[in-house]
Design a protein around this nucleic acid. Structure first.
Lengths: 341, 341
DNA sequence: CTGTTAGCGCGTTCAC
DNA sequence: GTGAACGCGCTAACAG
């Protein structure tokens, strides 16, 4: 039998469904004999009680809140995940936290559809990179509250995102203040297929800082490629082979900064003595390796996002606005005053 | 009204529940007028259709598989999480993946109870450190299949765990082969409150290797403390202040190895020139910082665990056994031949 | 102690 | 096009 019910069990054991139910909930005493019979029947039939029927009947509804994120990839997502969990645990309401991994961007839309279709979730935290207007409307129409943790904030959707332009400015400003003039930007290529403007925004901040210091722009110093440590490694090699290589590099993410540093060291140069490197994000890793970076409070972002979502679910009329703390320059060991050579 | 149902909506709109249902599922055409009325009622009442009732009625059951882990803590858990998600995505069945964070060990039992109580889950991946026999029996009785990812494998429970003794041996053996004789062990204190034998097992492997090489044991070289980078940092300082400090340190986890390296560098010594350091786990971080370590295939562990669990759920009669690949020594940049001084 | 029955909220035939 | 009634699997309250 495909899915035996308590009726099947009851019939087989020669008892009523009530008895079976009682045994399942080890409530009121039942005679050991019948208990035995029922337990046997359960075993033979391979009976498993239906979760949903149970919930319907008891009225105990778990609420599910879901997080959509490309989990295989950058550590920055994990940091946000941490924050989300933290906020959830503090709330103490019995929410289930469901993780949806959409590492393959193509499947994202399909996945979102089934989530909505099956009304699997009472709220959604979306950390994927590309989130279309169409998808937003889908969720709105389905009445599923959601919070975006990304860089594209359209209309009245709740969204947690840093000021990437300002962050780019900050990072570059730091390098300038150390006397660097030949400063490279290493980041994700843009425009990209997903319409993610992060890299572009940070780049614009970079340009703006350069401009404010009357440094003339050198397109050789702009290195764009796919996200990842390896690519950053290669891009850095290109930079180093320039007739006049940069004395400082602004990598748009910590991971890319790591690839960058590896390439520099491998070429026989030192960080920061020969070349300064600054990253962006301040993931845990950065603390360990002493990377100078711009902290964007990723964990805090997840934390706040979850709190907002909770508000939206529990008290829709009154969601208290929450803001990310401002970006913060974290100076560690990979940047230094430009050597006066 | 607390939780309006389609009946409430129907009444308010002056129609039957069937009509409301149809509109909800945008199926058969309904007259625009009634549609309007119903939609209004839905809005006014703040109606949200019940997920469970829907599932019961349609027969579409999502299966939930849950992972219990202390998520705030070491990165090793994240790696396993990755593996689990990967296996889940490959399966492609519509399983929900629920994350239970039990960062507070005290709450673990309580949490497990509610999970079982509410039959919230069709299968469980348990990565927490302390898992009692009582808890095991609880799950067995509830008929919830589960897989353990830990070091304590009692009885016939499915379990993924590395050979920690052998790992400890491997690490120490490596240092010995480089000519080191004054080798320290830095690990979690044991016995501990949770009965986690990991540190002890690796320590025993360490002892065994020492013994095989006829190195006399020096208790000064054994430094135990709570898990974490900071503690490891302090412990290392103690080691360095010894009249005859070690020339090599085996840290029982990569995170502790990081704290260790930091302390060494801070004291003016170099790694690996002055002191060799080997870790354990091979988390992502280790690749970035070039740490020599023992790889225990964490991601793979999560992956296999999920596969076994899937088997248990889908084809209980036939779960194909899966094994972790053997521990692997990964030599990177933090260990070196002992200087002949 | 135990069998029976009425919902839980929604989807889905049916007749109308 | 639309309303009424039944069923999904289980719990709980009621008789017995």
């Amino acid at each position: 039998m495909a899915n035996p019910t308590i009726y099947d069990v009851a019939k087989m054991a020669g008892v009523g469904v009530g008895t079976v139910s009682r045994i399942l909930n080890n409530s009121t005493r039942v005679s050991p004999e019948t208990q035995e019979k029922v337990l046997d029947a359960i075993r033979v039939l391979g009976f498993r009680r239906s979760k949903v029927a149970r919930q319907l009947s008891t009225g105990i509804q778990h609420r599910n809140i879901g997080a959509i994120m490309p989990f295989i990839t950058p550590p920055s997502f994990v940091e946000r995940l941490r924050g989300m969990q933290k906020a959830l645990n503090e709330q103490d309401n019995d929410f289930n936290f469901i993780l949806y991994d959409v590492s393959e961007p193509d499947r994202q839309h399909e996945q979102l559809l089934t989530i909505v279709e099956q009304s699997a979730v009472d709220g959604l935290l979306i950390t994927t990179l590309n989130f279309t207007d169409e998808e937003r409307d889908l969720l709105k129409q389905a009445g599923i509250p959601f919070v975006l943790l990304s860089d594209v904030c359209t209309g009245d959707t709740n969204c947690i995102s840093p000021d990437n332009f300002h962050g780019g400015y900050l990072a570059t400003q730091h390098l300038l203040s150390l006397g660097h003039q030949r400063i490279a930007y290493l980041g994700d290529e843009f425009p990209n297929n997903y319409g993610i403007p992060t890299s572009e925004l940070r780049y614009k901040g970079y340009l703006s800082a350069l401009d404010d210091h009357d440094i003339s722009f050198n397109s050789d110093y702009v290195c764009l490629g796919q996200h990842g440590e390896e690519i950053a490694y290669q891009l850095t090699q290109q930079l180093l082979s320039l007739p006049e290589p940069p004395t400082a590099i602004f990598a748009m993410s910590d991971i890319q900064a790591v690839g960058c540093i590896l390439a520099i060291r491998e070429s026989g140069l030192r960080v920061p003595e020969d070349i300064s490197v600054i990253g962006f994000d301040d993931v845990q890793l950065s603390r360990y390796i002493g990377l100078t970076t711009v902290r964007q409070h990723l964990e805090q972002g997840g934390y706040l996002g979850m709190q907002i979502l909770m508000d939206m679910i529990m008290t829709p009329e009154q969601v208290t606005p929450r803001q990310l703390p401002p970006l913060e320059l974290i100076v560690r060991g990979t940047t230094r005053q430009r050597s006066s050579v």
